[in-house]
């Protein structure tokens, strides 16, 4: 079945904005997965041998560390998107 051509109403600059957005979200979600489900679950057994202050590293990630990383992810998304909005504004008014 042939793939018909899609409607494309975003102009070049809008497309650039959307692609940047997707790239950034993907990066953040990779960190989200590695820290939360990786460090807290998949690699919990080996990391349980690593001491972290009074507890083990995996215990800390599972109970507190992952949540701290989650805050940073959402914060960096808001900051980065503000910057992207500004870059887009400048790009749009270049010519």
């Amino acid at each position: 079945m042939g793939e018909p051509e899609r409607v494309q109403t975003l102009n070049e600059k809008q497309n650039w904005y959307w692609k940047k957005n997707i790239k950034f979200i993907s990066g953040l979600l990779v960190i989200w997965f590695l820290v939360g489900l990786g460090g807290g679950v998949l690699f919990a057994a080996p990391l349980n041998e690593v001491p972290f202050f009074g507890v083990t590293l995996s215990f800390w990630i599972g109970h507190q560390g992952a949540i701290l990383v989650f805050i940073l992810l959402i914060l960096s998304y808001a900051i980065r998107m503000d910057k992207l909005d500004r870059e887009y504004f400048e790009k749009k008014h270049e010519n």
Partner: peptide, 9 residues
Amino acid sequence: LMGWTGGYV
């Protein structure tokens, strides 16, 4: 702990 905050992300 992680399930509910991770979903928020």
